[in-house]
């Protein structure tokens, strides 16, 4: 129930700002925009799915004039969905070459490509030292990597008091992981792309 509500809310989220009142532009030309210090995150984000949490939240940094995002997330999966309670730490890099204006306040990044790596804590049987002979299982239970492909729809919020422009964005990402990808590559007859794809839905708010 919770996950279907969450799913519905996140699916609907990118559409919500369109229904809101159109606020007047409040661009104040003179004030210089103070640059964020290098360690200050540029945005916060919350998402569901993508193999990195029923809910995952984190912070991120933007580079290359907002084309490259580096996000760090911590995700949570309750026991009833995975057997044990899982905590998943994720690093995500996303490159979005284009930003297209739709209306005065809405922009879209039609294509984001990227990679993620995740570390899962809390598995029942991740393997203890000495449990297995060397190279018994060649793969890692706890580390996953995978490609991502997605889009992002952004709504321009009123600028901050310091004049910095901020967006609230909704995004989706289609992805997979190394183990699914290997299974697919070796079994192209039996498995199709839909078998290995996962979907992420999320919201990103600029600070």
């Amino acid at each position: 129930m919770l996950q279907s509500l969450l799913c519905a809310a996140l699916l609907a989220a990118p559409l919500a700002p369109q229904a809101g009142p159109i606020l007047p532009d409040s661009v104040q030309a003179a004030a210089p925009v103070p640059r964020a210090r290098w360690y200050q995150p540029r945005h916060v984000l919350v998402q569901t799915g993508g193999g990195v949490g029923m809910v995952a939240a984190g912070v991120g940094y933007a580079f290359l004039r907002d084309r490259l995002d580096a996000d760090v997330l911590v995700g949570y999966v309750p026991r009833k969905h995975a057997g044990t309670t899982l905590t998943i730490a994720t690093l995500k890099l996303l490159y979005s070459p284009w930003t297209l204006p739709l209306t005065s306040r809405l922009t879209v990044k039609p294509l984001s490509v990227g990679v993620y790596g995740s570390y899962t804590h809390g598995l029942r049987n991740p393997g203890k030292p000495g449990q297995y002979p060397d190279d018994y299982y060649w793969f890692s239970n706890i580390m996953r990597v995978g490609p991502l492909l997605g889009s992002r729809l952004s709504y321009a919020l009123p600028a901050t008091a310091t004049g910095r422009r901020r967006n609230l964005s909704g995004y989706y990402e289609l992805g997979t992981n190394d183990l699914y990808l290997l299974s697919y590559v070796q079994n192209r007859q039996a498995l199709g792309p839909h078998d290995i794809l996962t979907l992420t839905l999320g919201l990103k708010l600029d600070l």
Binding site: Q3, S4, C7, A8, L11, P14, L15, T48, G49, G50, G51, V52, G53, M54, G75, V77, H81, A82, G83, L86, I88, T120, L123, R144, S151, L153, G170, Y172, L174, N177, L179, Y180, L197, T198, L199, T200, L201
Partner: peptide, 19 residues
């Protein structure tokens, strides 16, 4: 982005260990 409610929600995997 909107997707169909059901298939989208089925693709939303919380972890590969999500059962």
């Amino acid at each position: 982005a909107a997707g169909s409610w059901l298939s989208a929600c089925e693709m939303i995997e919380f972890s590969p260990n999500d059962h």
